[in-house]
Design a protein around this nucleic acid. Structure first.
Lengths: 340, 340
DNA sequence: GTTAGCACTCTAAGGTGTCGAGTGCTAACC
DNA sequence: GGTTAGCACTCGACACCTTAGAGTGCTAAC
């Protein structure tokens, strides 16, 4: 249908323009900039229809119109045109994977910084490794006090996890080392998710040893606590006119300072690599006028990197997705190339 | 001198009032609220003097007056009255040291959160352990690829450090384990600062072993990279009228997202436990209208915790210092009580 | 179906007037 | 001589009005 096609084009033009300017879009603007064959009056009729269909909102009588959440959804699902990065932008992203910078700063922090400074949104990087993907290479118990020990787990991919154990019985340092050695030898190659089961089937000969076993089974840290989180570019968000209202800005920034909230925002539902969540879809009241574009990359060492860009619903979705894609590409290159 | 004393009192009243209200203070306000025996005209004369002496600025002719940086300095050095916390506040701080919360979130993060939510300033916590304070308990090399290894250092106090080593020569996993065991036995009890010297005096029998020694000597991470940093309550700052200007807010928040800048802000000069830096004294252009109150606590395990509160120069210095003191007290209690 | 024209609405921006808070100065007071 | 009352003056905040501009919806003509 030709008419439907035209409505689409007009809606797309409105969204494009609004994303660019943040100003309500009027019929005249569309007629001049996007659909020169049609008069503003015609556009007005179409816009009126689109408003009735729920794609547009008007802030008040004589302002232009603003895309609704439903419009953004349609835009992302059907109207998104690929937005390849420029050569400079690609190079900029790749430069943060340069191995020479490796020592100074964490890779995740560099990714967050690069993405946020390129897109002007806030960027968050979460690194999780599912326990079943982590095989134990070595284990070590370090005495802290007579009823506390530090448990250090080193996985075969080189990740280190540590947490303290509170013990029921006291245990001498020498004995702790012995237990440590035995456990290390017996559990090598065991995945962290199988650890409790493996431990349950073991019996210790001393009270101290038994209390270590017990503590290791019972005192596992929460999975969430194991996720590494880095956020960058929060202050970028203050550039957007939607946050020139200090209260709104504070509400959003406060979310972006709360670890649990950020983790919940970046939670991926299915197995999708990319996801775009718009406004209410973000799941938090405070972010109902934000959008979040996330990408999850499963790396060869089992690690899952979830990278999110957070900005106003009026987001340059195409650019954001392209930037994430490029980061994913570089990430895989770096990590799959490194251990051959 | 009585006159001088009166000038002091008036200046103090002005600063107190300005800290409370953020509004330029007029002579009438002082006469009514603080010095009821004196008329506003007298106060005006004194204020005029104080302005000439550089303690006050007037934003424009008919506004009240505002304390200058010099005034705050005097205020902090000589006029500060102790500001004990309320029972609730003390309890609130202590509650974040509760061991039950221990697993969910890092202690530093909890301190930062508690301090910032109590004072409404931004709080930063830096944890450093001087290398000379850290004695090696155990060392482990984990193969990553044939020319890369992960070095894990566990200190006697239970801290874990890790970084990757790039090796000149390739080395087989079995050999790496052997080297690892030998080094671990030989270096036990050695302080991390003595490590390079100790390593230099050693000789390996294989090329692989030698390259490990070499890499361990040469590829030490920077001290700054070893500092743990947590920041909380950034969004609090948006509540202050001095940051209702979005540009100012952005500039400050951007500083508070840059690790190196925060570390430089919290750098303590001498051996002082507490320090107050006002405006230009903070050392950064971006924070010339901020103040930073820091406290450094040296814990029994050698760790140094530096805790900073960042807010407008119009800061409640007394309260900030009391809060830091209380945190220090709780901190020492927790850590010195824990390993007896 | 498309368009021109028109009346209407609403915001943003600029201008004006008033109020209140504050200052500096002077002259009088104790 | 320090203190105070009084007065003229300044400046920002606020309310109010006006105007210009952009946008809409409706109607009638093409």
């Amino acid at each position: 249908m030709d008419l439907v096609d035209r409505k689409y084009r007009i809606l797309q033009a409105i969204i494009d323009d609004y994303i660019l300017t943040a100003l309500p879009v009027g019929s005249r603007t569309i007629s001049r900039k996007y659909e020169q064959k049609l008069s503003s009056a015609t556009i007005r009729n179409e816009m009126s229809d689109l408003e009735e269909l729920g794609y547009l909102d008007s802030p008040h009588t004589s302002a232009g119109r603003v895309p609704s959440y439903k419009a953004y959804r349609l835009y992302v699902d059907q109207m998104l045109r690929p937005m390849p990065l420029s050569v400079e932008e690609t190079a900029f992203i790749q430069s943060c994977f340069d191995r020479r910078a490796h020592q100074v700063e964490d890779l995740s922090a560099r990714i967050a910084k690069a993405l946020s400074s390129m897109t002007h949104y806030a960027a968050a990087v979460v690194t999780r490794t599912p326990r079943e993907e982590q095989r134990l290479s070595h284990l070590q118990l370090v005495p802290v006090s007579d009823r506390r020990a530090l448990l250090i787990l080193v996985t075969q991919s080189g990740a280190v996890r540590q947490h303290t154990l509170d013990l029921d019985a006291s245990i001498a340092p020498e004995e702790l080392y012995t237990v440590s050695r035995i456990l290390s030898a017996r559990l090598e190659g065991c995945s962290l998710s199988d650890l409790p089961a493996a431990l349950s089937s073991m019996r210790a000969t001393t009270a101290g040893g038994q209390s270590v076993l017990q503590a290791m089974i019972e005192q596992q840290p929460r999975e969430d606590a194991e996720a590494a989180l880095v956020v960058g570019g929060r202050s970028n968000l203050l550039n957007f006119p939607e946050y020139s209202d200090v209260d709104k800005a504070r509400a959003l920034l406060s979310v972006l300072e709360t670890r649990e909230k950020i983790l919940s925002l970046l939670k991926q539902d299915g197995e999708m690599e990319f996801s775009v969540r718009i406004g209410p879809e973000t799941g938090l009241e405070e972010t109902r006028d934000c959008s979040i574009v996330t990408a999850s990359f499963r790396l060869s060492d089992g690690r899952v990197n979830t990278i999110g860009l957070i900005g106003p619903t009026r987001m340059q979705y195409g650019r954001a997705l392209s930037a994430l894609e490029e980061v994913g590409r570089s990430l895989r290159e770096l990590l799959d190339g490194q251990d051959g």
